[in-house]
């Protein structure tokens, strides 16, 4: 049984009320979700609160998971990311963390390493996405990173990158088209 199949089994068991399976699911997946929440929300407190909310939701919604919803880990990561975006959009701008110009550089360097809990199967997928990311122009890649890792809106990206709003929208779209085309070629 590969990692993805194992996660599916744990999700199914969790849906049936198996608490041990849910704990295993949490132990294996929470470090990845927590890393993402920390990256987007930028404070330990917010990320901890969000992680808690996310796993309560996973416990409650496990029965709604099915394979056509995508891989189990992407389903879990999506729940976490949508929760983070929800919190981010509701956050008072005055209490938000200040922009960190080094953040993108840190993200890019961080993403070069993969933790011990990511297995070779996942690494293979990561290489594909990583390879495709390298096909983008630096500004396209940066705009997608800012949107994904920091949850920035078009306007916020425009401010951060000091580029007109229309230019940023175009960068994102062109970046996504290139990424999609690259991924399609690779399949």
């Amino acid at each position: 049984m590969n990692q993805s199949e194992q996660l599916v089994e744990w999700l199914k068991a969790s849906a049936a009320g198996d608490e041990r399976a849910f704990k295993k699911l949490y132990q294996v997946t929470s470090p990845h979700l927590f890393a993402l929440l920390l990256r987007i929300l930028r404070t330990q407190e917010s990320a901890e609160d969000a992680l808690q909310d996310v796993y309560v939701k996973i416990w409650q919604k496990a029965k709604t998971y099915e394979l056509k919803r995508g891989s189990p880990i992407s389903w879990l990561m999506s729940i976490a990311r949508y929760r983070a975006l929800d919190l981010l959009r509701r956050r008072d701008p005055e209490t938000s963390m200040p922009d960190d110009p080094e953040m993108v550089a840190i993200i890019l360097s961080d993403t070069e390493s993969a933790g011990p809990q990511v297995n070779s199967e996942t690494m293979q997928s990561l290489s594909k996405v990583n390879r495709c990311m390298q096909c983008l122009t630096p500004d396209q890649r940066r705009s997608l990173m800012l949107a994904y890792y920091e949850g920035l809106t078009h306007q916020e990206m425009s401010d951060r990158m000091e580029l007109p709003l229309g230019t940023v929208k175009s960068l994102v779209r062109r970046g996504l088209i290139s990424l999609r085309d690259c991924l399609a070629e690779d399949e």
Partner: peptide, 14 residues
């Protein structure tokens, strides 16, 4: 969601 989750998984686990 599948594609971008993989981008998220590149972060070092915490």
């Amino acid at each position: 969601e599948d594609q971008l989750a993989e981008v998220g998984l590149k972060l070092s686990p915490v």
